[in-house]
Design a protein around this nucleic acid. Sequence first.
DNA 1: GTCTATATTTCGATAGAC
DNA 2: GTCTATCGAAATATAGAC
Lengths: 203, 203
Amino acid sequence: MVNQAAKSQVSRGGSGSGPGGTRERLLAVATELFTTQGYGGTSLREIAERLDVSKAAIYYHFRTKEDIARAIVERIMEVNGGIADRLTVAGKDSEAWQRAFDQIIEIALTNRQLFMVWDRNDDAFQKLFADDPVLGPQIEAQGEPLGALFADPGLAPEDRIRLGCAFGAMMGPLVMYTTFYEDLSTDTLREHIRTTVAALLAG
Amino acid sequence: MVNQAAKSQVSRGGSGSGPGGTRERLLAVATELFTTQGYGGTSLREIAERLDVSKAAIYYHFRTKEDIARAIVERIMEVNGGIADRLTVAGKDSEAWQRAFDQIIEIALTNRQLFMVWDRNDDAFQKLFADDPVLGPQIEAQGEPLGALFADPGLAPEDRIRLGCAFGAMMGPLVMYTTFYEDLSTDTLREHIRTTVAALLAG
DNA sequence: GTCTATATTTCGATAGAC
DNA sequence: GTCTATCGAAATATAGAC
């Protein structure tokens, strides 16, 4: 058995470990298929066919199908940690939200594929790793700040809804309706999503 | 073989055909499981277990698993037709969008479960019924007005993004982050989503 | 690192009794 | 309308050659 944790680092040069390596290509293909078909709706045969390798070859890189999802969720949690931090810092200060959202939009822009695969599979992934000693608490800690905001009983319903709408507004062009904005540059998306969300938060 | 089309109408009284009938309960359970686990990630065994019937019992009500999805998508298309109409009517008039969104929010409020299951399975459902003679064109016709808006080359990128954000803002509290707003009434949700989306559209 | 071949389980679906 | 029993296909996963 190969130590997968060690392999997640790009330790040596040469072919087979860099961004063009089979393991990275596999994670890219799996992320795409999990996004369009869902984790449960994607088979290892489909992943293998896209990579033009045999099903068995996958098992050299990952012990189980669940481990493929685990590798993806680990990366999502790295990204989401940053978002949770911004939210906690912003607290209940209305002006602080503006700055927090600017940073969150930036994070979303540079990690759109991870946002999309999480959007489609959050229930499945949470159920899969709820009892995982490392990923379970991480997932819970990441969802907490969001719930503490949207469901905060100390906040006016108007503000709770405004914040949920602000997140949704950002997710619209970046995650939900991505296909319609493929002709626009990252800079254009950032600029107009920022001003639109800002207008929403200002009320 | 039973004529399923005839059964979709509540034709006779008595038990077994009304809202508490097995067929309706089955569609409700399937909609919920397709939402959380995805269409491909949900087995007929799981549906049967939730209904406390055998797997074979499902085949009395639906010829295939695909037909269960079909019945759900048919209802989604009924709802989406109304939305497509509002969008087409609104055209490029900025003030007309406000009224259109008020009506779309109302439709979303009364059909949240259908919005959620479509949000999670739109790719899967579109692929399933792309070649269906009745559902295929319906799905295409329903997605067209949305694309004509978000991807309209005659519209300024700022406005294209604003509209995508407006849809996303509505989807936030109603579809994506539903669990955090379960304590709020429909009236509270409608009121504050309306004003928030209006502020976003006003700029 | 990747292959063929295979074991085991679960899936969607059918047959036929009640 | 629902059941038990069963079929063939497809799923995850393993063994062992190269």
